[in-house]
Design a protein around this nucleic acid. Structure first.
Lengths: 183, 183
DNA sequence: GGTCGGCGAGACATCGTTGTCTCATTCGGG
DNA sequence: CCCGAATGAGACAACGATGTCTCGCCGACC
């Protein structure tokens, strides 16, 4: 009968990704538990969001590990990363926009680590001559986050087919919309 | 002594872009007016957001008109559009994420018109052989919105220089991160 | 100079959300 | 089979935000 905190968090992530202003009661109901039980596991809304943030950081970090970014070309590494991150795309979209609400109050240091790893990968691609050097690693990192969130929403709204998730993100981020005639 | 509604809206947009959960009182204070006066002009929070939405649609539509998308190459048209849209980027970022909160309740038909115009421009670029046909116009449209919002936030946080706003968006969207050796 | 309309400030009731509590129930282990 | 821990449901007060009101003030217009 014990509640699975991890499962509750995933359900909450799915709901809050679509409706960031959802009530604690709505979160509890969507997880199939009572509001009191939700409070027993997460002291309040802040604690819930914080737990969600840590879950997102864990999943992102796991995706980074699983993608083995330092193996092979930078491009292939990016493809593996997007593939591994797809299951957590909705959670990531929520957290990225949620972070905008924190007016510099305090940002989890985990984001710094993640940013550094992703940014370093883009920098490696630049140094190896794979990526353009006129787009800064910081911007490419932000753009990756933004495109993941945008595509996750587009899939939810039916504007992009779910099976095209990885392709649309990676192809746009790597190749852009311009058609290269020599290809 | 009459309040300039337009100016109030722009101030509100600047605040709400950064803090979507700002109080009506905060909005009023940031605009330098009293909460009562704010209520006299906008019946409530919903009315304020709706007015903001219509302002955003007007500005976006004006940017589309000014960009003269049908003149010259599709690429140049996109560059002009991003340039014209830059002043309203923060407002757009707010509205795009705010729209995620509307769980299909009702979407302003203005967004449909805007989507159609932007989407048609990408489609024209595809038909003229300028743009790739494996990235759907709908996705390119969403990606444009997403990158504009992401870049607006990145500029606010100092991760991207303000002067690079147009360049970063257009270059990434058109050319992607991959380095083309023949260039 | 007087009047009138709009504004700011504050008071007030209301509503929704939140956090805490109690109590009955149920599931699982001893 | 019994006991205890955990859960669900509901009640409750507290808090913040909201919407409405009044009052005093000031600037504009006549």
């Amino acid at each position: 009968m014990t509640v699975d905190c991890e499962q509750v968090l995933r359900t909450a992530a799915a709901l809050l990704s679509r409706k960031a202003t959802a009530t604690m009661d709505e979160v509890a109901k969507s997880a199939g538990i009572g509001r009191a039980t939700l409070h027993r596991h997460f002291a309040g809304r802040d604690a819930l969001v914080k737990a969600l943030e840590e879950l997102g950081i864990r999943e992102f970090e796991a995706a980074l590990d699983a993608a083995r970014l330092d193996e092979g070309s930078a491009e292939d590494g990016l493809r593996r990363l997007v593939a591994r991150i797809e299951p957590a795309a909705g959670l990531l979209a929520f957290l990225v926009t949620e972070n905008q609400l924190f007016e510099g109050a305090h940002v989890n240091e985990g984001w710094g680590r993640l940013d550094a790893r992703v940014s370093a990968h883009f920098r490696r691609g630049q140094q190896q001559g794979e990526f353009r050097i006129d787009l800064t690693p910081a911007w490419l990192t932000e753009a990756l986050y933004g495109l993941i969130g945008t595509c996750a929403w587009a899939v939810q709204d039916g504007r992009v087919a779910a099976k095209d998730f990885q392709y649309m993100i990676v192809e746009l981020l790597l190749g852009g919309a311009r058609r290269n005639v020599e290809q």
